[in-house]
Computed example of a mutant assay.
Amino acid sequence: MTEAVSPAKAWLMAARPQTLPAGAAPVIVGTGLAIHDDFFAPVSAAFALVGALLLQIGTNFANDYYDAVRGADTEDREGFTRVTAGGIIAPQSVKRAMYATFGLAILLGTYLVYLGGVPILVIGLASVAAGITYTGGPLPYGYRGLGDVFVFVFFGLVAVAGTYYVQAVTYAAEPFPLWLPEGTVPLAAVVAALPVAGLSTAILVVNNIRDRETDAAAGKRTLAVMLGYRLSRIEWTALVGMAYAVPVVFWAAGYGLSVLLPLLTAPLAVSLGGTVWTHTDGEALNPALERTGQLLFAHSLAFAVGLAAPALV
């Protein structure tokens, strides 16, 4: 198997491009709200997007490496091929790629730190640390049922509000503020982050339902291992349901009819729910995992367009 995979394809497998919507989605939504509020700053948005994607890829490298060295990725695992456990790329090479990717994210983030000051510095360093310690370090929280919380907070709340902040702060304050200038992180930015947070976490829930048995055998106590199948499926349903409740809240708050555009993606969510509630095998859940990522991206793009539309017409 190793000989059949080219180096380029191997690194593409390690980067897991199918997960990149989880990195792009919060930037898209945060930018949509920034456009609505006349705070759009294209350069800041572009840096936020590249930084978010690098953090996603770095986290993927970290998970690939640390899950392999901890023995969580076994031959019984039904998920997508992991390059470290599969012997496709040497473990130390994956580890170096992880640190290089996070290092590049930090380097590019210096511009956002210049604009956003101490809040962005803290968020950036915390995001890198969280990406590594998800499965790495002496106490990996992904092995203790906290992975869902990490994704919800960092790939949802922090990423959307942070994207909005780095654009709003260019209008509201001088470079490198020591704290959040007034009006740069409104309540709307936090509430708008909830659909991204919910759907991003739903991706992880599908992954953990699929891997529940092998994770339990390897001592990896994900939330799905702790809760069992039924409660994990209820969690998935609640997270996805929240993603459709929030646009209705924005519409009720006067953001215009266009903010309901994400509801057009509801049939895909219902179809995915049927799969998640009735299957545990990789044959069914691997496609569902990718389709949940597609749902996240489609919902986020529709939400961003709905938020921005009143300012563009």
Rank of each mutant, 00 (worst) to 15 (best):
L146I: 13
D148I: 09
G109A: 05
I35F: 04
H299Q: 15
G71A: 10
P175Y: 12
V69L: 06
A284W: 04
A224L: 11
I106N: 00
A298S: 15
A216I: 03
A130V: 02
E174Q: 15
V313H: 05
S44V: 04
L261F: 13
P186R: 11
V50P: 00
D76I: 08
A224M: 07
F176T: 13
W277H: 15
T214C: 05
S93N: 14
R96C: 08
R144Y: 03
V240G: 07
A46E: 06
M98N: 10
T133H: 02
L104I: 06
Y255K: 14
F154A: 08
V160H: 07
Q56L: 02
R16N: 08
L20F: 11
I88D: 01
N60G: 12
G145P: 11
L257P: 07
L239C: 04
L125P: 04
G156A: 11
A188M: 05
G71W: 00
A168G: 14
S258E: 13
R70P: 02
V259H: 10
Y255R: 14
A252Y: 04
L108E: 06
L178C: 13
R291H: 13
V313S: 07
L264K: 15
F40D: 09
A192R: 10
P119L: 08
L264D: 06
V69W: 01
V83M: 06
I89P: 01
T237F: 01
L257E: 13
T237V: 02
L289C: 12
V158M: 05
I203P: 02
A25W: 00
R70Q: 08
Y65Q: 09
A238T: 14
A25Q: 09
P310G: 07
R82I: 01
I57S: 01
